[in-house]
Design a protein around this nucleic acid. Sequence first.
DNA 1: CCGTTATGAATGAATG
DNA 2: CATTCATTCATAACGG
Lengths: 224, 224
Amino acid sequence: MEWEKPPPPPQQGEDFNGGGGGIFVKVMTDEQMEDLRKQIAVYATICEQLVELHKSLTSQNDLAGVRYGNPYCDPLITSGAHKITGRQRWTPTPMQLQYLEHLFDQGNGTPSKQKIKEITTELAQHGQISETNVYNWFQNRRARSKRKQQAAPTANNVDSEVETEVESPNEKTKKPEESQPPRILCSRTEDLCFQSSQGIDSLIGKMELPGNYDPYIHQDDFMA
Amino acid sequence: MEWEKPPPPPQQGEDFNGGGGGIFVKVMTDEQMEDLRKQIAVYATICEQLVELHKSLTSQNDLAGVRYGNPYCDPLITSGAHKITGRQRWTPTPMQLQYLEHLFDQGNGTPSKQKIKEITTELAQHGQISETNVYNWFQNRRARSKRKQQAAPTANNVDSEVETEVESPNEKTKKPEESQPPRILCSRTEDLCFQSSQGIDSLIGKMELPGNYDPYIHQDDFMA
DNA sequence: CCGTTATGAATGAATG
DNA sequence: CATTCATTCATAACGG
């Protein structure tokens, strides 16, 4: 589902802003742009799928005329709402990695703020990197290191899985105080099992949106 | 494009950094901005409507089909894992998120105890949720919002003056975010209208939405 | 190409 | 509040 090649690397030189010229404009960060694009794409996709779903369900007789001459964006549909964002993620260079590992081995736990700043500055000598990257790296490194260690009690101690517990063991999320009536409204979207099930549920699950827009606006304007 | 891996992955870096000559700041006019927001809002609304519509329809003639609330669905996880993910942590549904974001944007800091109760009650209409969830959400949202802002204080200047660098992120270290070609798949929805299912139709009509704020949205990729 | 795997990032919850 | 932990999601890197 990848495009072809990884994202166009350098990614520069082009400015597609149509003219923006000397006009009063707003500037968005890539982050914001991503959010917007993501959201729109997600909605667009969802709407289409909903419509399709609806049609296939309602038109049991006249679906004869369902001709698709229109290649939708399958790549997107099948894989959910990602992909649309051509986001790239940081990847440590060998040198950076080496340094990071080195620090990690020194035992000191999470470097913490100030330290991170220093490290970042240091590593920046070897390539793009940000404090966040460093921070995340340590977080992940530690977490995974711990998990691995924990999952290595070789031999015995095979308490196997006691799961069977489908709903949260310590359902802290739910308080007896507010048991809601049998509402049929999207019963959680926890199961993000897309792929085969074109059910509404899976679609709803994709409606995540990060933004801060104000979707709660005047439905009347459009839904009148 | 064999950008190996060690080399300077051109990735991340901040928007305007653009380095040398590549600048890819996204510029929008207020008008375009407005259109975007509008479209998103419309999509959000439509999706909700569609979902509702679908549900009311299926609940009356399809009583046995899709199974909602699928406890779990564990497609992946290959290496002998169990993981009957019952999902133990709360995840806001799209609608809940929207509402929360909405509230957050209103500026008022962490809601009071009482307020939280109200919010929770309100959100419970859209899925399971507890006061704790709401509380945590606000705490996290605020904390992260702050952190992010602090990590990217770089002012937005359209200046376009060639800063010449990205390579010395002493303090400018910014959160790496994507920088991608504006690719968004927004396949036209009008083609879906041919079928007549009253409810849906009117909804679809609304999807054609505000024209083109297009500099970033290219449909061609899939519409060939 | 396509499916895996490794791992960067996001985020709910817990702790101080 | 500030930090940290734990779990999950998305994707770069890799092998077939």
